[in-house]
Amino acid sequence: MASAPENEKNASAPEKKTLTLKSMINNEEFVVDEHVALQSVTIKNMVDSDCAGDVIPVPTISGEILALVIEYCKNHANPSASEDDLKKADAGIVAKDIYTLIDLVLAANFLDIKGLLEVTSQKIADSIKDLPHQDVREIFGVENDYTPEEEAAVRAEHDWAFEGFP
C-alpha cells in the first residue's frame, strides 16, 4: 500500500471487488464485498454466468430485510469467527417478530442461503411449538375455514396429539 491515497480506489479495486445490491421495493442500495455476497448461491450463479452488472437488482426483498441478510453474510464470511460467536450473532439476527421472520425466510429462499434458511425456519418453528392451535392461528393470521363440525372431526382424527390442549 505505497500508492498515494487518491489512487487507492483503483489500486484496491482488483483485489477487493465489491458488488452493489439494490432492493427493488424501496430502491435502497447496499455495497458489499464480493466474497460476502457470494454466500448467496443465487448471486454466485449470476456472477459466474456474467449476467450481473454493477448493480444487482433484488426484487421482492425490502431494504430492511436485505440489511439483515447482509449482516448474516458478513458474519459468516469472517473466517476468524468462532462457532459460538456465530451462533450468538445468528440468534440476534432472528430475534425479530414473526412477519420479519417470514420475510427473512423468503429472502433466504430467494437468495439461496442455506444457513440462514435453516436458522430462520428453526426460529419460526420454535415460536409456535407447544402452543395451542388457536394461538398459532392468531400469530400467523391463518383464517379458519373449517366449520365447527369439520374442525371437531379433524381433531378427533388425531386426538392423541391434542391431549392436554383446549
Partner: peptide
C-alpha cells in the same frame, strides 16, 4: 419452506397444525 419449518417441530406439534385450516 413450510416442509422445512414443519420438520423442526415435534411430530405432535406438526400433526396439530392440521386443524389450523383446510
Amino acid at each position: 419452506i413450510v416442509d422445512k419449518i414443519m420438520s423442526q417441530l415435534s411430530l405432535r406439534d406438526a400433526v396439530r397444525t392440521s386443524v389450523l385450516s383446510s
